[in-house]
Structures are given as C-alpha cells and as structure tokens.
Design a protein around this nucleic acid. Sequence first.
DNA 1: GGCCAGGACACCA
DNA 2: TGGTGTCATGGC
Length: 218
Amino acid sequence: MTDLMQTYNRLLDHYGPRVWWPAKTPFEVVIGAILTQNTNWNNVEKAITNLRRAEALSADVILNLSIEELEQLIRPSGFFRQKAERLQLFCRHLHQSHQGSLGKLLEQPLNRAREELLQLKGIGPETADSILLYAGKRPSFVVDAYTGRLFSRLGILTGTEKYDQIRELFMAHLDDSVQLYNEYHALIVIHCKDVCRKKPLCPDCPLGDICAYKQQNS
DNA sequence: GGCCAGGACACCA
DNA sequence: TGGTGTCATGGC
C-alpha cells in the first residue's frame, strides 16, 4: 500500500506542513472536537471565542456553569443542546475518574484510553481519535468524511468501509508516527475543504492525475 | 432559499 | 447489522 505514502507526499509537497490542531491547549482540542461534530469550523470558532471571553475553557468552569449558560455560549456551533450536555458529561467524567486531569486520561495505554473515550455519550470514533491524536499526541489515525470521500475517489476505498476498517488500513500501512498521522489528517482536510470542492477544479490539483472525480469532471 | 459542514445517537426492521 | 430521523447554526 505505497499509494498511501505517495498520496501523503504529494499533498505535503503541494500544501506544505500544516500546524494542527487549531487550539491553544489540549483541553481546547477536546472542546473543538466535540463542537465540530457535523459543523463548519467557522461556527466552532465563534463558540470557542464565547467560551474564552467567559473564561470557560476549563473543565471546572464548564461544570459550574448552568446548562442554559453553556448552551448560550456554544450556540453558534449548532446542535447546542446536545453539545452542551456532551461537554459537561466529559468534564464530569474527567473530574470523577482522573482528578480533572486530561493528561491522566490520555496517558493510559492507547486502546484503553480509546475505549474509555468511546464509552462516553457523545464521543464517537472520530471525536475519540481526534482527542487522542491532537490533544494526547497518541498515534491514533483520525478518519472523517473527507477521508472516505477522497480515498474512494482515488480508488483506494470502495466507499462501503466502516470507520474502524479505514482507520486500521491506514495504521497498518503507515509508520506508527504521531507526526505522520497528525500531518496526514490535516492535509486531507485542507485539500478537501479548500481545494477539492472548487469549481472549476483547481488546475494544479496535486492528485489530479489519479483522482476519479477530477477525471470525470474535466 | 436550499445546501452543506472535520458526527453521534436512538430507534426500527 | 443496516437504514433513517434528529439535532441547529451560519456561510455561501
């Protein structure tokens, strides 16, 4: 499966290294990972700005807010009622099981930390892997809608694979490297978000010659 | 005014 | 196990 590294190298050459995740602290990564579920990042930024102004970017403060106060702060990110509940559930778990320490949760053996995250309501596989990789600097590859879309176009996926199948494919064929996983996911997002949907298609698309979408539409 | 965005979950057959 | 409805805001 050298195709995966070939694709990575092309994206890296074209876009250059990205600095990810767009957050100032590991805890902010968690907040962003939950708020960005099926939501445009611009809306997430508005919500995080509100939390920052309210000095509510910590587990203790989020737990001490009323659910209504938290809902209003994160309202721009959409789905604000369920996301407010999810944020408080995560913070409560952190408090009860790890003395409020995100580091203690994330420094456990990878599979154990991942399973613990997945047991929390509102933390699915993509959110868990984003937290592990970008907040915990643990080698857990993040799969998202862009990953499935892009690699289906490249013929590497069929489009019917489940989340864990895709994650395991990448992890089986790539070096076990936090830096590589970090960069690869970031490059997939920047490629799909800013370039791959442009019409007319970007003439210097780094994957142009191997992308089925480009070939069908050119 | 419709479509979409860096998902997850409940419910049903 | 797979398909479908729900959750909600803001930019284009």
